[in-house]
């Protein structure tokens, strides 16, 4: 399940095609918006858990969280990225770190540093599929994640906007010469990415009900590792990268080397990059002379 959520985040990290260290923190922001909205809703719903109303409310909360994060993504791009578009790349990397710190420490400042329990809106119960036991939560998370991943895939590869987005990511200047409104495309890409991070944040919070301001760091980093592993800018590559990391991690986690689990993602990454310097599916393009 964790791996599956990771995919969602991976897919988003890939869309951006640049290191965005703040991504995991937007994920955190999303789950906190959900936490407060959910808490408010739970207080006003008088135990209607399980009714149709609770489903509507849950969907509304997710939408609210997506809107909030999308808005944040827009502001983030406008304030911290756009002014630096012609600056050295490293400058935007540092601002990304700054935004990341801002969310982490701002989160600790506003929400408090202790973990919080995500409210229950929909009653949790077990479901039996033959020999496999699962919960309705896991199924909900799975379904929602698949829907959004399909949606992302469709947006990137099936729409005019997606084509513009890929063009901008491939060559910013040429894209702008071709009449693509690059500024708007990049803004919207940030909004979509952030909104999807919110989805991932809520799904994560629902299936693992403890959230805290620093919860985004590792998933965000791993999403990036998966993206690099698959080859930057390659959505299926990131999914495969995430899958490889997830499988080996759970394998190692169950062995007597479980203490080394946090390092596994990086060890795999280094091992693969040594042999394929542009990731598993990335094309190695020697610089043109």
């Amino acid at each position: 399940m964790q791996t599956f959520l990771q995919y969602l985040l991976n897919g988003i990290a890939v869309g951006a095609k640049l290191i965005n260290f703040a991504h995991g923190d937007v994920f955190m922001l999303g789950s906190f918006v959900g936490f407060y909205a959910g808490g408010w809703a739970a207080r006003h719903m008088n135990n209607q858990a399980g009714t149709l109303m609770s489903w509507v409310v849950a969907a509304a909360i997710m939408l609210l969280s997506m809107i909030a994060c999308g808005l944040f993504g827009y502001l983030n791009e406008r304030i911290a990225y756009r002014p630096l578009r012609n600056a050295p790349r490293i400058a935007s990397l540092i601002t990304a770190i700054g935004v990341s710190f801002f969310l982490e420490y701002g989160g600790q400042f506003v929400f408090g540093p202790d973990p919080k329990f995500f409210p229950t809106l929909i009653e949790k119960h077990l479901i039996q599929f033959g020999t496999i036991t699962t919960t309705n939560y896991q199924i909900i998370v799975l379904v929602v994640a698949v829907i959004f991943m399909a949606l992302l895939q469709y947006i990137v590869y099936g729409t005019r906007f997606g084509r513009a987005m890929r063009a901008v990511s491939f060559n910013f200047e040429t894209a702008s010469l071709m009449g693509i409104p690059t500024d708007r495309i990049i803004s919207i890409t940030f909004m979509i990415g952030s909104a999807l991070a919110a989805v991932a944040g809520i799904l994560f919070a629902v299936s693992y009900p403890k959230i805290d301001p620093l919860m985004g760091i590792m998933p965000g980093l791993k999403a990036f590792v998966a993206a690099v592993l698959g080859g930057i800018g390659n959505v299926p590559g990131a999914v495969v990268g995430g899958l490889i990391i997830g499988i080996i991690e759970s394998f190692v986690g169950g062995s007597r080397f479980s203490n080394f689990t946090p390092a596994i993602a990086f060890i795999i990454l280094i091992g693969i990059l040594l042999f394929r310097p542009s990731g598993l599916f990335g094309k190695y393009e020697p610089e043109k002379v």
């Binding site: 290191i19 790349r89 930057i232 390092a263 280094i270």
Partner: peptide, 28 residues
Amino acid sequence: LPSLRLRGDYLAIVTLGFGEIIRVFILN
């Protein structure tokens, strides 16, 4: 050594990962 073949973001994430690997080993 890997930096000979890696560029930009790839090198950044590998060095970052290296730092984390060191930390995890020390932890153990």
